[in-house]
Design a protein around this nucleic acid. Sequence first.
RNA 1: GGGAGGUUGCCCGAGUGGUUAAAGGGGACGGACUGUAAAUCCGUUGCUUCGGCUACGCAGGUUCGAAUCCUGCACCUCCCA
Length: 427
Amino acid sequence: MSPTNIIEELRWRGLIHQCTDENNLREHLSQSRVVYAGFDPTAPSLHCGSLLPLMMLRRFQHAGHKPLALVGGATGMIGDPSGKSEERVLLDTDVLAANVAGMAAQMQRFLDFDGPNAAKLVNNFDWMQGWSYIHFLRDVGKNFPVNVMLAKDSVKSRLEREDSGLSYTEFSYMLLQAYDFAHLSQKEKCTLQIGGSDQWGNITAGIDLARRMHGTQLFALTCPLLLTSDGRKMGKTEKGAIWLDGTRTSPYAFYQYWYNTADADVLLCLRFLTEIDQDEYRSLEKSLAEEPGARNAQKRLASWLTEFIHGSEGLQSALRASEYLFGAEISDLRDAQLLEIFNDVPSGTITRAELEQGFPLIDALVRVGLCKSKSDARRSMDQGGVYVNNRRVESAEMLLTPADLASESALVLRVGRRRNAVLRVEG
RNA sequence: GGGAGGUUGCCCGAGUGGUUAAAGGGGACGGACUGUAAAUCCGUUGCUUCGGCUACGCAGGUUCGAAUCCUGCACCUCCCA
């Protein structure tokens, strides 16, 4: 990709929500520039919410620009009020430092930290920790008209709510993010900040600040937020975030999440989160319209992202697990295979002696955590929702015996379509 | 400080002495259908050694019998000062 067509690339993908004057920006980007996006270190791993901005930086890097990934070691201590309905819980310094380290490692997958336009990781704690309050008010605060700050959507919406206020601390967040941009423009020659559309106010505050402090002209570009068709954040389930760290969200679970993307959302995800080219995109779009049951778009999305995040090995294991979990009867496996395939499902153990006497399936379901009580287990059985090694159980009184083992010392229990657990035999 | 009302199962919410393990709704879960989707339909949603046992803020009391009546305590909401 050449430096000149990044705008076109973003345009067809629908990734431009708002930007400072497009013609100027296009002209500006005709040379290699320094681009930054900020990330909130609220957890020791990145989650799917960061996929979009990271891919954005990656696209810019491929187009010949130098990406700066800013982790908010300082701003994370404050909390951005944009899009939040409540005052945020403050994180302490040690936790933040650990989170920053975890995120930095994961960014290697997205950005090339070597080479001519190497990416760079910066932490605003490094330049903010030394500030004194007086110093900050004189040099930065002086440049912010409060009436302008009050007019920002992120602030206004919070002030209009009756059930929650906005603390001075959160109100000041904008100044910190604005200062980051101004600082990076001086220290790193950064001229463009990108972010989600909810960041527009904060980004433009930085542009204003840099003009006042240094007389420089900076640029902004925001992407649409990645929302599902029913308005929720993509990359989150009722049970929590989908993480990029394989120990938090296994490659299998990660693959399944994307595989199950709704038809209405899958095209958006393909454009926003992957690097498949326009021709392939068109053919997937066509496939989705003509043979939705084949779910080629979902498959491509899931495999592209899984391979990108977890490597081809991660993808292979996710595919293998998917095949077994939704496939035929499980039998004649080796322990190692079985445990690898089912590595992220809950498990429990029984003794060899218990199995040899015949262990009630009801008790096994409770032991592995698939059912919360024996009554619950019995109900699931009565409803025909219990499977041993993918084969439906007919009798509620079934006893498990060594004949039910799917490998040397393990068998697979399932309730419903997809809640699996492994029962292992000890000794 | 004075007065009024409230506290029911995962959530909301009926229920004012006797089939009330507690209406109804939401959510969740299981099944059918399907495309591991959505929608729809059906079912389930305290525990159990299936004899029972424990549940309606907490602790006592009245009664053959209480979520329902009485007393005390805790918490919440509203009104007055």
